[in-house]
Design a protein around this nucleic acid. Structure first.
Lengths: 207, 207
DNA sequence: CGCTAAACTAGACAGCGTCAAGATAATCTG
DNA sequence: CAGATTATCTTGACGCTGTCTAGTTTAGCG
């Protein structure tokens, strides 16, 4: 949150992303305005426009780095192959909701209407987001092959539903519709049970 | 969208809700400002404040009427008891996503962060929304009793997950994350299959 | 008819994103 | 090294937003 002393800031672009992420996560998106950001950094109101086309471009950059972080977490769990598959699926569910609960504002930016609704996501964001979406499909296919999820359904469709489940739970929690967030772990386990209904034999192992 | 001719409008409160709903559904929430609304109705910028405490109160009123409409649709399907239970569950899923896809802006208002995040929903909205949430739990319990959903799980937890699934799919569709909305019906059926994976015998009947 | 209270208006304020035009400084070129 | 180019930053302005305060109009009621 350093203030610049010389006419040129040095690395205003990075400083903007850092300050914006800080404001987003700690104060909420409604406290994230370009003018406040400029003031934080001791820079004029319009200085950010030399590094980002508009506010959306800045938000896209923040979301993109969120996707990179999340992809690393997901990959780490999925490829932690010493654990049996059901355990990893259950862990993934908890990790997904956990990530959303820990970074509600960032999650909203990554998966919410702000950037996606009117195709306002920058190309750079799409480049990092789409592989993440695709990874979800690959994981689903693997879990089908492992007999944890119904094998009869096309992986893409099933991934859309299972991701939908996680996304929906995440949204209800972070949007404040589930006022009581004390039972998140229970809800995650219930989701896992619903996914793996046919697998009683492994289910006990997984828990 | 009538303009008033006398000093007093007559029924500005209702006119505001109607005009606001119209703007919301046809132009999107970003085109819904109190000032534009006032201009639509030929009334001063501050006139709405004599009928609604602030913008949130107006939005709450719109959302509340949305809940009433949705509750009627849901009740109609659930209590259409001539159809077998699996058919009704499947129909409910399609109706839920269908309602969200048909009224994306209203759905966002009803179930989104705008009103719920900081407990900004009015008491009137809560009074009509909470019974709707509760109804979801009752339906879930019934479907458990019918053997369509796992009976071992507490109804509340299971309802949170199944509702999460529908909510998540709805959000991904209306927020523009699923760019291609051509396969909504397929996705709904996949969700139904996932819910009822232990019920092959009734599943064929349901489809 | 006169009074009260509800309904409505005009003016103002602080905030926002963003455009245009000009100033400054670092960097590249001859 | 000198000069030109270009990236970076600034000031000023515009139109938009929600909402507060103070004052005006009118409907309804005793």
């Amino acid at each position: 949150m350093r203030i610049k002393e010389s006419y040129h800031h040095g690395d205003l672009r990075s400083a903007l992303i850092i300050a914006a992420t800080h404001r987003l996560e700690n104060l909420g998106i409604e406290e994230l305005s370009l003018r406040k950001l400029a003031e934080d950094l001791g820079v004029s109101r319009t200085a950010p426009y030399h590094h980002f086309k508009d506010k959306n471009a800045l938000l896209s950059a923040i979301a993109a780095s969120g996707f990179e972080e999340w992809k690393a977490i997901a990959t780490n769990i999925f490829e932690h192959s010493t654990d049996p598959a059901p355990v990893r699926l259950r862990a993934f569910i908890h990790a997904y909701i956990g990530y959303a609960a820990k970074h509600p504002q960032l999650y909203d930016l990554m998966f919410g209407r702000t950037l996606w609704q009117h195709n306002e996501a920058s190309q750079g964001l799409k480049d990092v987001a789409f592989p993440t979406f695709q990874y979800q499909v690959e994981m689903t296919r693997y879990w089908q092959q492992q007999g944890l999820l119904p094998a009869s359904t096309e992986a893409l469709r099933l991934a859309q539903v299972t991701w939908g489940t996680l996304h929906g739970i995440a949204r209800l929690v972070i949007d404040g519709v589930y006022a009581n967030s004390a039972h998140i772990e229970d809800i995650c386990d219930t989701a896992a049970d619903l996914f793996m209904q046919r697998c009683d034999f492994v289910d006990n192992v997984a828990k």
